[in-house]
Design a protein around this nucleic acid. Structure first.
Lengths: 338, 338
DNA sequence: ATGAAAGCGCTAACAA
DNA sequence: TTGTTAGCGCTTTCAT
């Protein structure tokens, strides 16, 4: 049986209230009693029950972290960063993996509210998450978006400059002489996808290249298989692209798989570029040309922002933080002749 | 203000107890009242307070997941699997990233106890975690180890057959003609390292190859830098190895970095093998020869085991589950002549 | 400096 | 079928 504050009180010959004061560092306790209480605490291995404490204080020292997929290296690192900051500040993190389903996202948020979390860091599924954000607002739960924003949402968010970065990526391809550039992208209900698509179009326009809708493949799944399917669709076109801009690294992996299966050489037959690097793996054999985003910083920054709100110290207006990305050119879009 | 059970009770014109019955699906409520209560719940957006519920029921529907580093793709996947199983069974997960420090591990466990988690899935830092396990036992908290075990520990664990797998990996190198095989491994206080080292020695012995202590590089850090440093140490030996067995993928990355810096060609000048593949990245450009472990299954299996204990249905003896690994031969130990 | 009383939101046990 | 009482472990408020 775990000991309670009353056990400690009894052992130390004081009231529960005094134990509470000692535990919470209240100075209005004599050194002598404090010593006795501390001894009893050690003796009984007393650990204060946070559930009881949270119940009365009306906050749980717990935060929710909701991401589409922890296996996506970008979110892995964002969560890692968030966890570190939360821990340092005395908060625990409840991990929620929505698998990109809005309904699951909703269910998770309901759970988080039930568990009285003090705030939520959320990488929303997409614009459909709007009602989920509304739900959080209704429940007066502070939250911060990471990576993706939601159409019509006005509030704290930490994201990348997706339009500009996408444009940079496509301009890089154009500079290499590519004129038939395809894009594999999530539905425009996902803000990052929308912005990347927009950057793609801007780059084409600026170079007076034709925009072909057949070169835009939409995929809602984010896994190698989706990239593979998309690539095959492109390879089967009457006129095939010479380069593919995959919305992120995971999709790019599938595109590369498909290229290999069709015996297409990368980058000679088909160049590939994408967002996000592959975590540790990219050290290893840097092959993909990527717009690398500081994923862990997305997490630390968003969590810091959330804590500012939660602890109430920050009453400033909406904070919209944009984190920079960097173009890393590797073999998959190598500068060889095409 | 969030509504409570009393608000709902008042709105529905019943007692709080009746609302509680409806919420918990107790059949002893007339259809008529149930309808009124349900309506009030929806009306008031009522969400039961899990803190209060946990306080009285003496369990929180919350589990702790403690890993050395979520950024290690192996643990990323294990956590992902665990999260899925926990969620399906109505449990929330509190994520703890120990960064391989026993003291942090201890602090996390204390927190988890304070938060009244119902159980813990733990990938321990190493044998030094022994006292932490004792701490859990003292607090009557059910737990399951994943991936690593702890010397002297007797209890549930889900792990791989590290000795055998290591032996397979080294035998593969020997079959390729390698006679100077080095190993980069964590201290033997980590069970997986201990077993992998043992498998390495077994393979050498079986092939009547000399064991040289200079070929064993110990590293406690698990990051590419550690692998790089270790590799340089090996390359500077009077007689250098022709193959390196890196304890895991992350270390192998650093070894490969070092080889590249020294202009050594892989696998002609130096072959590399290791445990664990690189998650998504390994799809991409399978390069490393690895013993691939079903990381996500480690998580699902361990979590299932933990839930069996937590929900009390399982009173069976200690469960020791061994998950198989598979040798995947790729370029880094290619069968070219050496 | 210390304690007693009350109650956070919920449910177990009992009563009606 | 429904309600009352009590209390989970803690902290707030108000006494002393």
């Amino acid at each position: 049986m775990r000991s309670t504050i009353h056990d400690v009180a009894e052992a130390a010959g004081v009231s529960a209230m005094t134990v509470s004061r000692v535990v919470n560092g209240n100075p209005r306790v004599s050194d002598e009693t404090r010593k006795r209480v501390d001894a009893a605490i050690v003796e009984l291995d007393y650990v204060p029950n946070q559930l009881a404490r949270g119940l009365i204080r009306r906050h749980s020292q717990t935060l929710g972290v909701v991401v589409p997929d922890i296996a996506n290296p970008f979110f892995t690192m964002a969560v890692r960063g968030a966890e570190q900051i939360a821990w340092r500040n005395g908060y625990r993190l409840i991990l929620c993996n929505t698998r990109s389903e809005v309904d699951r996202e909703r269910e998770y948020l309901e759970e988080l509210i039930a568990f009285q979390v003090d705030g939520v860091m959320l990488a929303p599924v997409g614009d459909k998450s709007r009602s989920n954000l509304q739900f959080l607002t209704t429940n007066e739960l502070p939250f911060v978006l990471v990576d993706r924003t939601v159409r019509g949402y006005v509030g704290d968010v930490v994201h990348g400059d997706n339009r500009r970065s996408a444009r940079t990526l496509v301009e890089h391809l154009i500079a290499l002489g590519h004129e038939r550039i395809a894009i594999v992208v999530e539905p425009t209900s996902v803000s990052t996808a929308r912005e990347r698509l927009s950057g793609y179009r801007q780059a084409l326009e600026a170079a007076a290249l034709e925009f072909r809708s057949s070169f835009v493949i939409t995929t809602s799944a984010i896994d190698p298989r989706a990239g593979r399917d998309a690539a095959f669709a492109l390879f089967d076109l009457p006129e095939t692209p010479s380069a593919i801009f995959a919305v992120n690294n995971i999709v790019a992996i599938g595109v590369a798989d498909a290229a290999r299966e069709r015996q297409l050489s990368i980058p000679r037959d088909i160049a590939i570029v994408c967002f996000d690097d592959l975590g540790y793996a990219s050290h290893f054999h840097p092959f993909l040309t990527v717009m690398a985003q500081p994923a862990e910083s997305f997490g630390t920054t968003a969590m810091q922002l959330l804590l500012d709100r939660v602890t109430g110290g920050d009453e400033s207006g909406v904070r919209n933080i944009v984190l920079p990305a960097h173009l890393q050119i590797h073999e998959s879009s190598g500068p060889e002749d095409i």
